[in-house]
């Protein structure tokens, strides 16, 4: 199967590398905005991963129509799609919150650099 590696990459390693990019951002970035972006990237990776789990080769969209009754097709797993919706909503909320927080921090401390903030903290 020639496209085995392709599906593996696009469904598993791809999303995971996106996740790792996000993680790398969190490990190295000192700017609050960049950290927010990193978190976002991480969430994208995770969401993509979840979606890809629902993939079933040559399956149809899991929509129950009259046509389905006649030939019993293979459905893609609908659950991950449902899950990911929730996850996206949550990640949007969190992102919004982080950004709001960043604004507040900036207005209060005048910087978004973590190293400078670290001195004020604690």
């Amino acid at each position: 199967m020639g496209h085995e590696w392709l599906s593996l990459w696009s469904f598993l390693y791809g999303p995971l590398s996106i996740f790792l990019v996000g993680l790398y951002g969190l490990l190295t970035q000192k700017n609050l905005i960049k950290m927010a972006i990193s978190i976002n990237i991480m969430d994208y990776g995770v969401n993509l991963f979840i979606i890809s789990l629902g993939y079933v080769p040559s399956a149809e969209a899991p929509i129950y129509t009259d046509a389905v009754k006649t030939y019993l097709p293979v459905f893609a797993d609908p659950l991950p799609q449902a899950l990911v919706l929730t996850a996206i909503v949550i990640s949007v909320a969190v992102t919004a919150f982080i950004l709001a927080l960043t604004i507040k921090i900036h207005s209060q401390y005048g910087t978004t650099d973590l190293t400078k903030l670290g001195e004020m903290e604690l």
């Binding site: 996740f19 969190l26 995770v46 991963f49 659950l79 991950p80 960043t102 507040k104 209060q108 401390y109």
Partner: peptide, 28 residues
């Protein structure tokens, strides 16, 4: 108005929840 502590909280907790999601999805 404890913004800095909260920022920490949000970031660490988000990382945690990302892990959780991966784990849950894989388990599923």
């Amino acid at each position: 108005k404890g913004y800095l502590g909260t920022f920490r909280f949000v970031v660490l907790s988000s990382v945690g929840s990302a892990f959780f999601l991966i784990a849950t999805a894989s388990l599923y």
